[in-house]
Design a protein around this nucleic acid. Structure first.
Lengths: 342, 342
DNA sequence: TTTAGCACTCGTCAGAATAGAGTGCTAACG
DNA sequence: CGTTAGCACTCTATTCTGACGAGTGCTAAA
């Protein structure tokens, strides 16, 4: 598609622009050393690259900047996978060594590390409950009218929800129901729980308990929760140091979106495993037109999957970020698996 | 301290400045109508007020802006407690009507409402565990080596922490210990738990269990958590619309601080109940010199206390914010108390 | 005591001049 | 024929200027 020389020049331009955030001219490329042609030759090629849509010119007498298409080509064909610095590797080792027990702590911590290593904003999604199963269910009465439902999943996560005890339901009734659930539904995948409750438990309750309606409502409430993936943000203020967000208006649209967790979840989750790069307008959401979002997936016990992502300006250090995400997602999968002993 | 007329003028200046964010001159005050003097007279008084430290002048030929001391006087003596708009009252009623069960949901929701009503940033602290007591403790084994410790408090909050099972400790041993704790420590205030564990439970364990060291470590881990109050932020991006934070540098110092939850907790918590206003440099933290922080306390079941706060520029709508916080803190206390039935 | 009047200060805005970066084109070179 | 040197041209950013206006402080009169 592109000639050898055009590739080299495109690579040089993207590289320079990522560093400087300023339009790059033919002269400065010629001086870099890795493209040994005179400015005039490079100018000709640049005109061609612009015609092909890989470059843009802010105004007539400025240098060129990469277009989204240009970044895309860079990422797909050119970006050299940089080896991480040793100091960064140290951070990873620390992450692994810290032996964090709770899943959320691992994720949270990974997010912080990610943001501080890259100087961009990290967005992590907690594991999807899709592939986890029920380990334990419990109803603790708090008062005459409320109880707390506690759900422990096979991956070790604990969800709890306070529910209202329906009129007339007794503590012993609730206890019997909880025992029934544990006996019958342990090991059942979370996403099938509701169905199983209706198909198996419902009749049982109807047969042996006095308050069918109330008890079913209670279960409905208890298992309604926990569906939404948690979102962990870190380094949102790194957005402020990017020159492209000097304009408060643009900044606000992005930061506002970061506060909308449901939308974020939607934008980040994808069926695809592995690394994914969405550049500028490739992102569906309007607020991200000036941003690139790079995501990777991690797994928990090989069962549940979550997403880790980096949000930055389209002028992003793709090579470094992709490398880091790749390593970190593996490190997380390792840290989150086999924690429960053999 | 200040003459009638000086008060009126100060009031007018603060009022105007809060609205416009521009230095206010003698002429515009004279035209307002509520201070019926000529610009010249007002100028004289303004010079006096500046000498007394209530006003400042950005430069010689500009109008005056209130100093921190000026705001302080305004808040203490002048700020008229505005009645809330009916549309705002509606939001409150909605809050009360929603019948949220979980404590965190109530707090989270209150924060959102607060931010959207005031257009500032809301910072809410979860209830301090200080006055709550233990209701239930439970240890659920997850695997050979890990278990999840679940702590339910008298106020209905559920803390959970994944802990490592020490070498050699058996499931039945853990179960016995949990039962012991429930029997002995139910109703004991959270802040005394550690002490009571050491003074009472420790010997008991030593007498009847095989793995004293291990079990004690387990308890240590389990009760180490839950101490830190949760922080709920909302409307952080409202900071961006304030003209005083047009300067990205200033903005960043504030937003950075908002990400540091431990520091925030420290800054917000105070022994004092009721409304508290900290203006500009009255805040201990350097990042808040251009900000005012107004806080109020709410109570949960009359036992635990939390803080709700609004952070904005020193040029803040004090009257409105104070009124709103006052009402909302009461509304929250109401919503959070008596939820557990009679 | 209050106010009108006036000279003065200072920041802001618009326009002009300048410098500089970078381009596109043409012609020469190997 | 690809490459390069040279040059005119374009456009932006910066600096400077002067005019303007908002607001003050002071003085003197009401």
């Amino acid at each position: 598609m592109l000639s050898e020389r055009q590739s080299m020049i495109l690579n040089a331009i993207v590289d320079d622009y990522i560093r400087s955030a300023e339009p790059v001219g033919s002269r400065s490329i010629s001086k870099r050393g890795d493209v040994a042609f005179s400015p005039a030759t490079i100018r000709n090629e640049m005109a061609d690259l612009e015609e092909l849509g890989f470059l843009e010119q802010p105004h007539t007498s400025a240098g060129r900047i990469p277009s989204n298409k240009g970044y895309r080509y860079y990422v797909d064909h050119l970006a050299p996978l940089k080896p991480l610095k040793t100091e960064d590797l140290k951070l990873f080792k620390q992450l692994a060594a810290e032996k964090l027990n709770a899943v959320e702590e691992v994720i949270q911590h990974a997010g912080t590390v990610l943001a501080s290593m890259t100087n961009y904003t990290s967005i992590l999604l907690g594991p999807e409950m899709f592939n986890t199963s029920l380990r334990h269910f419990r109803l603790l009465p708090l008062s005459e009218t409320t109880a707390v439902a506690i759900i422990v999943t096979s991956s070790g996560e604990v969800e709890n929800k306070t529910v209202t005890i329906p009129e007339g339901v007794s503590v012993s009734e609730m206890e019997r129901m909880a025992n029934l659930l544990n006996a019958r539904l342990e090991g059942v995948p979370m996403h099938k729980l509701k169905a199983r409750i209706y198909s198996e438990i419902a009749q049982e309750i109807q047969r042996h308990a006095d308050h069918y309606e109330g008890l079913m409502k209670l279960l409905d409430d208890a298992f309604a929760a926990g569906k939404d993936q948690k979102v962990f943000l870190s380094g949102t203020t790194n957005m402020l140091i990017q020159p492209e967000f000097r304009d408060i208006g643009k900044l606000k649209t992005v930061l506002d979106l970061l506060e909308e967790t449901p939308t974020l979840t939607r934008l980040l989750s994808s069926e695809q495993k592995g690394i994914q790069v969405r550049i500028g307008s490739e992102n569906i959401h309007q607020a991200f037109v000036n941003c690139s979002l790079i995501t990777a997936t991690y797994s928990l016990e090989g069962e549940a999957f979550g997403t880790i992502g980096i949000l930055g300006p389209t002028r992003m250090e793709y090579a470094k970020v992709i490398g880091t995400l790749d390593l970190l997602s593996r490190a997380m999968s390792r840290a989150l698996t086999g924690r429960h002993g053999a």
